[in-house]
């Protein structure tokens, strides 16, 4: 595939998708795509090349005859580019090289289509088109040798299935990638570490805490302790709906880890009832410093750090013009 319109083959994407030599060999075995199939497809190559242009024209006329798919190919440059990509794809079907470079090419096409937003139903429909138009031509060409025609057709079909599976995998992979990125963003947004004063951090936690989140929270906090040289951390769990023993143990771990870095953690927002319940089921809360509410926690923190808050007897009122 020396077509210059192909993007450089992205092997790293294949790695991310788990498409190794080993995996590809298993895939081919699973679909019973053997050396014989490779041979047959190579035999078809000359024949296929002779009508490649025709088939591509027919395919895009098909696309252009539907309102929904016409929209993607309004720009003549785009149409030209996609046509030459498809032509290379089509030729690749019978060129006889079905290793990882082939896979990379398929994954590339799949990702290009996914990114331009062509829906699965239209994109996958193209495979049927190939099987139909190519199938017709094969049976016409080899009508005097039905066995041969059938064997060519089946080899092509196996390859088409291998390709379809790759296309679907690529689409799924890209979607999952987007989801992962969004989850990451949500996680970062949901647990900000704020520096209130020099040496004092506050971590207000809102929402449920699972192991994954606890880990992320803890690691983020430890990094912030180092970056801001914090000596006191207020961990406010007022916004955590369910504090069970698992959550409590996560908190204890966070406290222990912070202490290893020289920071004292004050947990605020743990109600007396919940604390009592936890102690009853055997959670050792003695190692955590808790204060009922955030204000109390702040005062304790300031005390530890040596701040004294003095109230101005006559503060300015109203807005300043």
């Amino acid at each position: 595939m020396n077509d210059p319109s192909f993007q450089p083959i992205q092997r790293s994407l294949l790695d991310e998708m788990g498409l190794t030599e080993k995996e590809w060999a298993r895939r081919r075995a699973w679909l019973a795509f053997t050396e014989e199939d490779v041979e047959r497809l190579r035999e078809l190559n000359k024949f296929a090349s002779s009508y490649a242009d025709l088939v591509i024209e027919e395919l895009y006329n098909h696309f252009l005859s539907f309102e929904e798919t016409k929209a993607f190919f309004r720009d003549p440059q785009t149409l030209q580019r996609v046509k030459s990509l498809q032509k290379a794809y089509f030729k690749g079907l019978t060129e006889g090289d079905y290793g990882l470079d082939y896979v990379a090419g398929r994954v590339n096409i799949g990702s290009v289509h996914a990114r331009i937003g062509l829906e699965v139903k239209w994109y996958m429909g193209a495979y049927t088109f190939y099987m139909r138009t190519v199938g017709e031509r094969i049976f016409r060409q080899f009508k005097n040798d039905l066995d041969k025609a059938l064997s060519y057709y089946f080899s092509l079909k196996k390859l088409a299935y291998l390709d379809m599976i790759l296309a679907i995998e690529t689409i799924i992979f890209l979607r999952e990638q987007t989801i992962r990125q969004q989850q990451e963003a949500i996680r970062e947004l949901s647990t900000p570490v704020l520096q209130l004063r020099e040496g004092l951090l506050i971590l207000p936690i809102i929402g449920l805490i699972d192991t994954q989140r606890a880990r992320q929270l803890t690691q983020g906090l430890l990094g912030a302790i180092r970056a801001t040289r914090a000596r006191v951390v207020i961990l406010d769990i007022t916004g955590v709906p369910a504090v069970d023993s698992k959550v409590a143990n996560h908190l204890i771990q966070t406290v222990d880890a912070s202490r290893l870095m020289g920071a004292i953690v004050i947990v605020t927002g743990l109600s007396g009832d919940v604390a009592q319940a936890l102690v009853t089921i055997g959670v050792d809360l003695s190692r955590i410093r808790t204060v009922g509410d955030l204000q109390g926690g702040m005062e304790e923190a300031e005390r530890i750090l040596g701040y004294r808050v003095v109230r101005d007897e006559n503060p300015a009122r109203g807005t300043v013009r």
Binding site: L222, I225, R226, Q253, A257, S258, M261
Partner: peptide, 9 residues
């Protein structure tokens, strides 16, 4: 270090 503290706990 942060990573080490985390591993320790």
């Amino acid at each position: 270090q942060p990573n080490v503290a985390f591993a320790m706990v």
